[in-house]
Every structure is written in C-alpha cells, then in structure tokens.
Nucleic acid binder design. Structure first.
Lengths: 173, 173
DNA sequence: GTCTATAATTTGATAGAC
DNA sequence: GTCTATCAAATTATAGAC
C-alpha cells in the first residue's frame, strides 16, 4: 500500500464521514491529489472495494486507539470509547464512518456491509468483556448506540456540546 | 396535495429510510407508480424540495404518534418515544428518516438540513418538558441519541433484538 | 396531470499508450 | 503509475404538446 493509495483513502474517509457513500466520486478524489480518475482505479478496482478498504482501516485504527489498559474498571472502558468518539468529532466535526454507512445500509455493496457489521460486532465484543458481569452485553449495546446517536445529533446541531450532554450519563462517575 | 403526490412521498420516504438521500431517483419513484419522471417534477419541482416535504410530513406524523397523554410520568414519556421508534423499525426494518439524513448531513440541501434539525429540536424540546426537573434536557438528548443509535445498530445487525437490548435501560421500570 | 423528447452533467469503469 | 480517450448508463431538470 503506497503513499498515493493512502492519500486516496484519507480523502475517501473524510468524504464518507461527511456525506456518506454517495458523498464522493473517483473523480473528486483524483482531482484533490492532482491525478486522473483512471489512475484511482489502478489502486482500487471499484468504489465498493475502496470503501471496504477504508472501513477496514478505520476499524483497525479505532481498536488500536481504544486498546485495553491494565487494571481498568468497566467505567474506564466506557470512558475510553467515549473519548475516542468525542476526539473524532471534535477534531473535524465528522461522524463515525461506520455510523454513517450503517445508517444508509440498505444500498451498500455486500463487502462494505460486512465490514461495517464486523466493526460493530468487534466493538460490542470488546466492550462486553471489559465491562464484564451480568448484563454486560446489553450495556455495551447501550453505550455504542448512545455514542453513535450522539455523534449524529451533534452533527445535525453542529455542536460538540450536544454530544457531551447526550453521553454524560453513560458512566456513573 | 393529491393522491399521486402522496404515493410519491410514501415511496420516497421508504427509499430514504432504507438507503438515504442518494437512495432514490425521480425515475425510480415514477416507475414504481407507473408514470414518467417528468411528471414527478410537476408535483415536486426538485429532489431537495421533495425530500424536505417528506421530512416535514414525517415529523408531523411522528409528533402526532407521541402526543402527550394526561398524567404521564417522565418514564411514560420516554417509553412512548421508545415505542414509536421501535414500531417503525419492527414494521419495515427501516431507520428513522431524520436519523438517516442527519448522519450524512454534510451534503444535504439547506432546506432539507433545516427540516432535520427542526425535527430533532422539537423532539428535545418536547421530551425535556415531559421529563421535567433538573437535567431534563441532558436526559432528553441521551434518550434521543440512544434511540437513533439503536435503530442504526439494529439495521446493521438486521435484528430488532439489538434495538431492545440497547434501549432497555432508558427507563427505570 | 401526464406525456415525449431532450439537454447538460456526472458517474463508475475500461482499453491501451507511455 | 499515470495518462488520454472513451463508453454506457444514470441523474436532475426543462420545454412544450396533448
């Protein structure tokens, strides 16, 4: 994976998080880095292939950023996830990539839909283990739903404070 | 607003809730009711106009369905909202229209974005009043975020049970 | 209110030269 | 790895007849 491919993925990720799968074209990306759309097809054969690759990389980065820390409590784990989403929102005012794609999932190519589902499964699995105890999975679903929904609301309101208000009660402390 | 216009809005609403703003074209809608796309423009001058009209009607229906009932508690109000979203999801397996459009808000026409924000503002305003007391607004944001996020997750998982797990803890009882 | 016809643009994708 | 050239299809939208 060379530098051009990485720059293309960076741009695609930004566009998807802003406007969804339909929010960019190969021509857009090409123009933004000064090449032609035909050259983009050299790096990614189809748009769906590219979107799936972007989603996969997004997940890898995310799970690195929320990696388990020693001796953490359930509240710590939830705080870690909350901080990760908040940072993404505050940094560039954009949604979670998987949240955007998941919302309009009806028209997604199978390979992209799979990657999105895989991301959420892994979030729930990881969070459930780190929360632990009875009802851990339900709480994990609750946390993920609230974080994704809060990002969406914050985007509609164009206000990070909306995110903070919505997610404040996720932890006890 | 005649019958053809209503059928067009029904179809547009279903498509948007399934696949977002880019999930339908005037040709699609026209073909589904057996007319031509040029005729759709007679009822709605532009696609953005139509989407805004659909979002407005969606909001009106929603607020009718969650209308305040006498002597309700805060928990009752939250249950009412939860039931409304759950019914929409269980009925046709689709997202909240405003949630889908809100997620990919970066590319929305101003008139549509306004309608979406107006929907959420009205939800928060209504819920806050019915919840009441200190922290009512924050709780309203929390409830709305969780409900929207839970719909999105349920869609990715293709499972209504995911919705139920995610929203179970919104009420105490 | 619906039609035919069409314009103007964009899109995802391919072939083949360099 | 990037280019030119091009394709086939789809999209939003308009003009004007019936």
């Amino acid at each position: 994976m060379n530098m051009t491919a990485q720059r293309l993925m960076d741009l695609a990720e930004a566009h998807i998080r802003d406007s969804g799968y339909g929010g960019f074209s190969f021509r857009d990306l090409a123009a933004e880095i000064g090449i032609k759309s035909a050259s983009v097809h050299h790096h990614f054969p189809t748009k769906a292939t590219m979107a799936a690759a972007v989603a996969k990389r997004y997940g890898e980065r995310f799970f690195t950023s929320v990696a388990l820390r020693p001796n953490e409590s359930a509240e710590d784990a939830i705080s870690t996830y909350r901080s990760a989403f908040r940072a993404a929102l505050a940094q560039d005012g954009r949604m979670c990539l998987c949240g955007v794609l998941g919302a309009g999932a009806g028209a997604l190519a199978p390979e992209v839909a799979e990657e999105i589902l895989s991301f959420f499964r892994r979030c729930i699995d990881d969070l459930s283990r780190r929360i632990g105890g009875p009802g851990a999975e339900a709480r994990a679903f609750h946390v993920m739903a609230t974080l994704e929904g809060a990002m969406m609301l914050a985007r509609a309101y164009r206000s990070v404070e909306v995110f903070d208000q919505a997610v404040a009660s996720l932890t006890l402390s």
